[in-house]
Amino acid sequence: MKNFGYTRHTDRQIDFDATDKRLYQFVFDLEPSINLCIFCGTCAATCSAGHFTTLSFRRISLLLRRGMNDIVKKEIENCMLCGKCQLVCPKGVNTRNVILQIVKGIEKYEL
């Protein structure tokens, strides 16, 4: 391709009408506190698994809402359910149950 002196990124626009909300809805029904998340990132700062991997609960929360379930599935494998994120969350998101329900939802919808 001709080099015009700049790169083109792939389209990162999220079409909320087309996203797969099944997983989010499933989790929300069982653990409504997921809706309280303000994506502040406090949980990410303290994450035990984040020490070794790219896991961050904030990202999980965000990606879940955007319906990017394949990344959620991959990232969540690293969580040890240690609970640090839950203790620091300023909004009282029940993070560990959210994670358990996500994994269950992934099994249910075979994502």
Binding site: A49, F52, T53, I76, E77, N78, C79, M80, L100, V103, K104, I106, E107
Partner: peptide, 14 residues
Amino acid sequence: SLEYGFSYKYAEEK
């Protein structure tokens, strides 16, 4: 208990 979902490859690599 879940069939899949959690795997800790990074732990084994340490």
